[in-house]
Write a protein that binds this DNA or RNA. Structure first.
Lengths: 189, 189
DNA sequence: GCGGTACGATACGCCGCCGTAGCGAAGTGC
DNA sequence: GCACTTCGCTACGGCGGCGTATCGTACCGC
């Protein structure tokens, strides 16, 4: 029944349990004891694999706060935006994802190491959107002088605000409005 | 030297200390012990005035997370937006304010009582903006069918995202861009 | 100066979590 | 079947926070 030892069989269950706890209790609400109970692993085993609570949390964070978004390249800025914001909406409507990202954003203000992790996660998540904006500029769909970083904030800000600050569900109508708004505000005239 | 007893002289210092701790450590990082140490009051005294940690935090929260924004009525939508978002920017660039709001937003996902407090704070803060939007609609500056709640998210979302999610300072240029974007996206055509 | 009140100080038992140590069980390769 | 590794279990001392109980004290109005 037991899996093959000599191979580390506890790590996966520990990370899985830790990720679930981050999603439920938030980044700063996770204790090693709770991870041990939930995973079935002994506390000793956790300390064998990770030097500290922070190291474990950082590794588990990637599981429940996966920042990967679709990377469309349809040739149409509107369509690209629709796809990418649709992907973001799926994550924003996932309470666990919001809890993980939100609690890390909060904790990042008080810990330089967490701030690095948080920024890395965010910039990873921004990449597909900056890519389609750069392509749109290259195509002439958007003005040449566009500040892409500002544009990203203008585009995704409303969605993040709705889900993580106002804490309301993000429905399709709002996403459509956000796409329209993005196009209206980024295009000249 | 001491102030007049028979009058409660400890409450103010306790609330002040608690508010400072919320700003520094976040909503869920405040212990009664820490409040006692910081305020100079005895733990006993705190429990005499508040039945629970939550009650104290809720009361102190208002001090460091004051949601009041300017309520301009200049007759010009652009100018009203400029004033109100300028006021919001001041708060968003205050690390203590962001810590208080952000940590409560995070904690609200796991506690119904905190969710109520958070929503109350937010709707209080939204009021001046919804007011100017309604006035703009009445003037004909904005289309009659405007969904004001959605519009609020579209307008303030980018600023909240910048400050509390991306955790970058909100400069004047970005605010100006947000005002332009809001006008471009809300106006027909 | 006598009750009454607001308060500080100390101490209590309880709990959850920390990080570590020591042990035995189970399965591996050789 | 022996050496080795992974792992679970139990127990440890220490810490910080919880909420309460018991004092002593300073200051008020009367």
């Amino acid at each position: 029944m037991r899996a093959d030892p000599r191979v580390i069989r506890s790590k996966a269950s520990i990370i899985e349990a830790c990720a679930a706890l981050i999603a439920e209790e938030g980044f700063s609400g996770v204790s090693i004891e709770a991870v041990a109970n939930r995973s079935g692993a002994a506390k000793t085993t956790i300390y064998r694999h990770w030097p500290s609570r922070e190291a474990l949390l950082a590794e588990a964070f990637g599981v429940c706060a996966d920042a990967a978004l679709p990377s469309p390249d349809t040739g149409s800025l509107r369509e690209d935006l629709r796809v990418i914001l649709g992907g973001l909406t799926l994550k924003l409507n996932d309470a666990g994802w919001c809890s993980a990202i939100g609690s890390l954003a909060d904790a990042a203000g008080r810990d330089a190491e967490l701030e690095r992790l948080h920024q890395a996660t965010l910039s990873e998540g921004r990449r597909p959107l900056t890519a389609i904006l750069h392509r749109a500029v290259a195509r002439g769909d958007l003005p040449a002088g566009l500040d892409v970083e500002d544009a990203v904030a203008l585009i995704v800000g409303p969605l993040f605000y709705r889900a993580m600050i106002a804490r309301q569900p993000v429905d399709e109508g709002f996403v459509a409005r956000a796409v329209d708004a993005a196009l209206a505000e980024l295009r000249p005239g």
